[in-house]
């Protein structure tokens, strides 16, 4: 059983933020008090109330201006460092659905050291509600998947950026799309495709979008010893 995967084709993303809003809507998340800080990116970051945020970056790459959009969310690692760290404190506070592969934070996360879990994540995803100590991140819309629906963000995407399905199908789609884009975008790649369930296709180098797009890109990142161990263990357990 290879479970499910997302294929996020950033060559098609228009930064419309339908996914960001759809996520909040399905999860019925409260609104953060935001203000315009000189950017269209809002809320400015992920939080326990915002599990998916579209990040905007203005970059000049090879002499050409680019406005890059990155719908950031949990990657649902095949072997999730957050779970490895979590299990060492409270076993099964973080669980992985054997059927879909979704990595899910449970109520038991209250007992975890939130900072350690966040540091373990190569993509800087987990967030904590300081009032309840509950930890939050994308859960792959696991409830929707089991009900035969698409994740909320995928359902709403108008351009075909967000795709979801069986992992082998998504990998095939991703590879096919990458091959088609290569002539025009020679630096295009499938980011960490072997180790995550949310596979981003980046036409430009991943670091141009945001610092935590690719595993290890943002190093040196302060890694806890446990997270470090989790990281070195990862390739051994990875499967396609």
């Amino acid at each position: 059983m290879t479970g499910k995967s997302f294929f996020v084709d950033l060559s098609r993303c228009t930064g419309c933020r339908g996914c960001q809003i759809a996520c909040k809507q399905w999860k019925n998340k409260p609104v953060e008090p935001t203000e315009n800080t000189g950017s269209h990116q809002n809320p400015p970051d992920l939080s326990w109330q915002t599990l998916k945020v579209v990040r905007f970056a203005e970059k000049t790459i090879d002499g050409k201006f680019q406005w890059l959009f990155f719908p950031d969310q949990c990657r649902h690692c095949l072997d999730a460092p957050c779970k490895m760290v979590g299990d060492s404190e409270v076993p099964d506070a973080i669980v992985q659905d054997p059927e879909t592969g979704a990595v899910v934070f449970t109520e038991k996360c209250k007992g975890l050291t939130a900072g350690g879990v966040r540091e373990a994540c190569p993509y800087d995803i987990p967030r904590v509600d300081p009032a309840t100590k509950l930890m939050y991140k994308c859960d792959l819309c696991n409830d929707r998947i089991h009900a035969g629906l698409l994740p909320s963000c995928v359902q709403t995407c108008p351009t075909g950026t967000m795709n979801f399905g069986d992992r082998d199908e998504m990998l095939a789609l991703a590879k096919d799309r990458l091959a088609k884009l290569k002539p025009k975008f020679p630096k295009a790649e499938l980011v960490d495709a072997d180790s995550v369930r949310v596979i981003f296709l980046t036409p430009f180098p991943p670091s141009a979008y945001y610092k935590y797009v690719q595993f290890g890109d943002a190093s040196p990142r302060p890694l806890s010893r446990k997270a470090f161990l989790a990281k070195v263990m990862r390739p051994l357990r990875a499967f396609g």
């Binding site: 809003i21 909040k24 935001t34 800080t37 000189g38 950017s39």
Partner: peptide, 27 residues
Amino acid sequence: PWLLEAEPQMFCEMSPELAKMRGIQNG
């Protein structure tokens, strides 16, 4: 509320050159 959260306030887009000329910082 979710839409307002994403674009909460009136804004004015301008070039870095104009901002410099008028002494305006981003945000």
